[in-house]
Design a protein around this nucleic acid. Sequence first.
DNA 1: TATTGACATTGACGTTACGTATAAGTTTAT
DNA 2: ATAAACTTATACGTAACGTCAATGTCAATA
Lengths: 254, 254
Amino acid sequence: MEYTVQKLSRLAGISSRTLRYYDEIGILKPARINSSGYRIYGQNEVDRLQQILFYRELGVSLDHIKEMLTVPDFDRAAALRCHREKLLEKKAQLELLIMNVEKTLAAAEGRTKMSDQEKFQGFKQKMIEENEEKYGKEIREKYGEETVARSNQKFMAMTEEQYAEVTALEARFRAILEEARQGGDPAGALAQQAADLHRQWLAYYWSEYSKEAHAGVARMYVEDERFKVYYDRTQPGTAEFLREAVLIYTGMNA
Amino acid sequence: MEYTVQKLSRLAGISSRTLRYYDEIGILKPARINSSGYRIYGQNEVDRLQQILFYRELGVSLDHIKEMLTVPDFDRAAALRCHREKLLEKKAQLELLIMNVEKTLAAAEGRTKMSDQEKFQGFKQKMIEENEEKYGKEIREKYGEETVARSNQKFMAMTEEQYAEVTALEARFRAILEEARQGGDPAGALAQQAADLHRQWLAYYWSEYSKEAHAGVARMYVEDERFKVYYDRTQPGTAEFLREAVLIYTGMNA
DNA sequence: TATTGACATTGACGTTACGTATAAGTTTAT
DNA sequence: ATAAACTTATACGTAACGTCAATGTCAATA
């Protein structure tokens, strides 16, 4: 089957200008040019266009797509499996966003309250994924590959009810943490209660608990900019205070 | 809680440049400017930013978002419910795309074959949704509001297996239709068999069948550019031929 | 056969939503 | 006191096309 620009554009649901642009930047050249200078596309081009649109859908730049497709030993099946994973991730993120909308709706109707932090949950998740390339490996190496992955998975799988529970728990934890921080003693009763609540909170995200991982996370809160901002939002020094409390709680302060 | 540009940008997972741009185009102005000219955002701005990002996520232009938010009697709850619907649609579309990837994967491994048409399923669906604004109302008025809506719903809800069945059915239908078209007689046995397969095919998308609706769809195939292209893809005149055959089949050719 | 209308071509400038660079002032931490 | 980290405004750069404009091609019809 052969296609002119218009035919192919209709088939794929894009504009003819897009096809001309793709020709211009060399990402999709027509199979041949007929005697009147018309672009004629064939089977290979149809398949290639499909690939391009897959990647475009995932937000990959055309420049990047071009690179990927020009690699000689390009593994189509592997790329497709990668596609699927990315799409599934995107779907999970969308579900998060939907939950956010539902929470916002509940808050707007006065049924619940939302912290500023929560208001951007879905979006932040996206950012975190985008930043994975930069910081991701580093963090995963530091604090364990699976810890991060499982945490996300478990969160995605949470029911509405569980979500409400964990949110309430977090609120209690943060309130007590703040009170303890004002007291100033990370070894005190209040601070240790906060550390315990923190452990409970983590239990919602982790499949198994270990003192080492708990302490690791507490350290991460201080070392990683993004988490530090989260905890220091209300009062600076909160991340550090929590770290100290947890290190004492887990007995990892030696 | 008050935020400077950086604080708010980190909270929301966007750049500070974005906030300055939003100020510039007047979509999100800071609550006040302090003595050194710094932008200071308050609670209202946080909420407004959340709204903006919701819409942005859905691909709405900033210009359009601004319009929506400046409407004085803006109904937040209604907007949120609308958000949710749109997100659910997007999710359904994503699921379609995922199915497409899986089909493509199967085709790449030689397990099945895919028509050029099928290769762009997920993307085309998107285009159809985008074009809804332009043509949507018109079509719905012509051929019935619910017919269109239910068709989409049923398709989204299809299982993998059903999808395979309907694809096979469609292939058989198209083959027989082509053969019948070459024969040239829309009242002939082959053409009527094609019309019957078409009815079976429709049954996968519709919850109930009526001759009137069937004939209406056949007419639409000719009148609506997008459908006409689909059917005329292999051979011109196919849309018209199918219409004639179906009109005879349904007895609506009087 | 002449014409009409839908299609094609190559420029070339416009648009959106920011990124990035520069120069200069402000705040915070040591 | 001085560096580091933040802020400001101005301004030019960018990706991925959209949108003219001027012109050429092709199939169908009067």
